[in-house]
Design a protein around this nucleic acid. Structure first.
Lengths: 373, 373
DNA sequence: CCCCTATGTGGGAGCGCTCCCATGCATGCG
DNA sequence: CGCATGCATGGGAGCGCTCCCACATAGGGG
């Protein structure tokens, strides 16, 4: 343990006290200027700001945190396993957005990887002790108790992606349904007749939305029998078994192997498939392999569309048409939302919450056209 | 700004004082137990630990930091542009390693993206004010002043990768030279006659090492008579004389486009090239494209080897043989090294530094054989 | 026998900051 | 002309912790 007390070379930088002295004002006044309180005269403000600049003053976070009871930090929590799965652009782009939005806030970003029960408990305890002011949760599983735990201890939290259609914890999501719809409409527009889909695990809400988008696009195109109209996100799982009117659905698990297997299954069920919408780029890569093995050319014989616009998509041969989510913006929005929640949180008595941001947000998706379709 | 003072619902958890009272000891003693000081009797220790468990005590970081003068946190600094370049497994694996190693230390991991001059200065100031205890720098450019700035203000720092052969700032690197050598030896071993290389920007030390590995492997093969003559190509022998066989070197910039261009150039210079060692997987992807355009089959006509073992490598067709670095372990090692430095740092007077870890470390690389060779 | 060291312990003194109360000083009005 | 009202200001009181000094108690020499 470092011993920092006895006049070490630890130049800890100037203190508020010194700034105040330099500016010829009191500590309180200097503090007011630094925290942008309006109740300071213009003269004084200028004097203090000058002193700050001259001394290169940087507030001591620890002291501030201790005195104010807030930690001026938010945690970004990433489940370890997902780290690998979502590795692609998702994580780093979320990070970029979060970091960018936080840059002007001078809150710290604390990164926590949760790899097992133990670290989960540890973090929960940490949060319960209010060691951070808010939490961002990335790619949470439907059965993850963490969001509710945080809620119980009054820790503001924002999810990236809903866990269910009735998500009650604040979240930022992307429009999976519309994205999928765009993709399938695109395939139909290119003259494809038999459009299949490879879904993610259907116990995940995002996967269900993408499947719903597939169905809606086909229904809209009037290709099939009569699906009871605008069956939105809330629609309960569609039974692949009962796929009406030439719908070809295979469930996979967002992995490449899963996509490979699903594609083979689809080809077996209907060799005349001429287009496939995959609910992730990685699965599309697997499907691509299966198509190659079966001697089919992409896009001539079968058109392929993915989801995510990850690096894999750009590097496939041919490059993969895919649905892009505004991931960086999602990160930014999560931070804005969290800051909003944090502002509200600490005024339990019916204060006029500055609700600049709704507690839930769905951002648009976009089709990126490439060679595979 | 939240007002946390007046008896809010902010359950800040039990304090040391309360723990001490519960255990029937003084504050100082409780503190000693919690920080693992040896000068406590076994009875007392047990009592305090019991109290901690019963109360669910979690030390308040802010208070601890303020009192101890250390922040119990280290920063991981990532240059924004690199974030994209290294996106692949590199960043997330470093992160995993760092996080894993930090888990037992209960130091916080603070993530800082540096995107421009302004944020760089901001961070420098932050570090200078000792708001973190140490800094991990990922993928630093050769001309980045940050490492030296940190050094000047006495902030311990560890680099991932040297900036030059004479790097004086502590670092953890991987054995680029040997990795490259393995790759090229492998190609030669597979009976390839004309092995070319596409390098990274040669003002980067890692790129230079990989090129050196290429040369050494060819030289060694020449010495053992492994390589049958045919000294046709007028390749500039950068290295010691007597280059056995022609060397084919093209410089690129670690990008896919660069790899593409370099490969075309190589094919033009010598159409009989039958193997290429690329200093990164991404460049290999570019080279792959150029080879396809020229009607060459991989690996039949030209064998390809990359470097990094990134996702791209696995998703190429055929999957890319590549050189893998122990990235996660590098992250762990960086943390261990940094912790060591931090321990030393605060005892300037010739204390017996616990040098468990050298201030520089080079980890081994490994060849991953796949279909492309 | 007493002094001196070794060891465990209690608690004072801050760390640098924010909050808030008390103060000073103009201004407005009755 | 006096007093309420406003606002800018100074500085005390902690926030929860670590450091360290002082104090006990317990030995081992001289």
């Amino acid at each position: 343990m470092p011993a920092a007390r006895g006049g070490d070379a630890q130049k800890t930088g100037p203190t508020l006290e010194q700034v105040a002295a330099r500016a010829g004002v009191g500590r309180g006044t200097a503090s007011r200027v630094i925290n942008g309180s309006p109740r300071v005269s213009e003269r004084t403000r200028a004097a203090v700001q000058a002193a700050v600049a001259e001394l290169g003053y940087v507030p001591n976070r620890a002291a501030r945190a201790l005195a104010a009871g807030s930690m001026d930090a938010i945690a970004l929590v990433v489940p370890e396993q997902e780290n690998r799965l979502f590795a692609e652009p998702y994580f780093s782009e979320i990070l970029r957005g979060v970091s960018a939005e936080l840059a002007d806030t001078d809150k710290q970003l604390l990164l926590t990887l949760i790899r097992d029960e133990r670290s989960r408990d540890r973090f929960t305890q940490y949060a319960a002790a209010h060691r951070v002011d808010g939490v961002l949760l990335v790619s949470v599983h439907a059965d993850d108790p963490l969001p509710d735990l945080l809620r119980d201890v009054g820790m503001p939290a924002v999810l990236s992606g809903r866990r269910s259609p009735a998500e009650h914890v604040p979240y930022v999501d992307s429009d999976n349904l519309l994205g999928a719809q765009l993709a399938v409409e695109h395939l139909i527009g290119r003259g494809r007749r038999k459009v299949a889909t490879i879904t993610g695990p259907l116990d995940m809400y995002a996967a269900r939305c993408r499947l719903a988008g597939y169905h809606e696009a086909l229904t809209a195109a009037g290709r099939t029998g009569h699906e009871p109209g605008a069956r939105a996100a809330a629609a309960p799982a569609h039974r692949p078994a009962a796929a009406p009117g030439g719908r070809l659905v295979a469930e996979a698990d967002f992995t490449e192997e899963g996509g490979h297997r699903a594609m083979r299954e689809l080809l077996e069920r209907d060799p005349e498939v001429d287009a496939v919408f995959c609910a992730s780029d990685v699965m599309a890569a697997g499907a691509r392999l299966a198509l190659r093995e079966s001697g089919r050319d992409v896009p001539r014989d079968v058109a392929l569309v993915g989801f995510d616009d990850s690096a894999v998509a750009r590097h496939m041969d041919p490059p993969l048409t895919t649905v892009k989510q505004p991931i960086e913006e999602m990160g930014r929005a999560m931070v804005r939302m969290l800051l909003g929640l944090m502002g509200t949180e600490s005024t339990p008595r019916g204060a006029p919450a500055p609700d600049g941001e709704r507690p839930q947000l769905v951002l648009p998706t976009e089709l990126i056209r490439r060679g595979s379709s």
